[in-house]
Write a protein that binds this DNA or RNA. Structure first.
Lengths: 116, 116
DNA sequence: CGATAATGTAAGCAGAGACTTGCGCAAGTG
DNA sequence: CACTTGCGCAAGTCTCTGCTTACATTATCG
């Protein structure tokens, strides 16, 4: 059921990755074009290594791709991770809408049940 | 720009709230019907107080509604927070995703061709 | 009113994670 | 070959957060 997607390792990794504001900013940076780790880090006031660690997390969540060109590493948004997250949310959402028809009925039942 | 939505307090609260697996489980529990705090807590192996704190976080992110009936408090999923998250993701998408996917596939093919 | 039931709040602790400093490593360049 | 560039990795620090224990709060019932 839905519990599977609740515990999906992929979705968990994606949500944890985008929970950090700086990582969302990084995603915005590499959304339209490939960018080297150095150029990405230059946009922030933390150290280059800190951004490197963020990039590792994003890569682990399959939210960015990594391509090597000499000593440089180029990153770019990859849609797989976000597609997975969207599927999770859509699943949550559609199921809720599906049940929405019986909302009044369910309301009454739950209230009676809770009254015990 | 998109930086506003990156730093939106509401979206930040929602993402942080659903980043915790137990809170996602709680959302599933109260998705279809109202449920008391006690009944929700009974589904987990942590203390009732821990669940109460999770409910506070979910309520702060506007992901659940709280209704009092005597000494009991009844919780239920509220769509506002999820709507906000969806809007954020849709904004991030901005119909780039499909294009990105095609480009990624094309990149893979050209890179494979260049390797030989 | 006192007792009890359902729940939130507060303080403290332990683990997670974000950041820094220091170092290592691969690929060009003189 | 040394030297530089562009990175990632590792260990230590500090803050945040989720959990527990203990206490407070609110409402109902006798």
């Amino acid at each position: 059921m839905c519990l599977r997607s609740c515990y999906s390792a992929g979705v968990q990794a994606v949500i944890e990755a985008i929970a950090e504001p700086r990582r969302r900013e990084i995603l915005q940076l590499v959304r339209d074009e490939e960018m080297t780790a150095g150029r990405i880090a230059a946009h922030f006031d933390v150290t280059r290594q800190a951004i490197s660690q963020h990039l590792r997390v994003l890569h682990g969540a399959r939210l960015v791709s990594e391509r090597r060109d000499g000593t440089r590493r180029l990153y770019r948004v990859r849609p797989e991770g976000l597609i997975e997250l969207r599927a999770f949310l859509d699943d949550f959402w559609s199921n809720r809408l599906e049940k929405l028809k019986r909302e009044a009925e369910a309301d009454e039942k739950s209230r009676a049940a809770n009254r015990r």
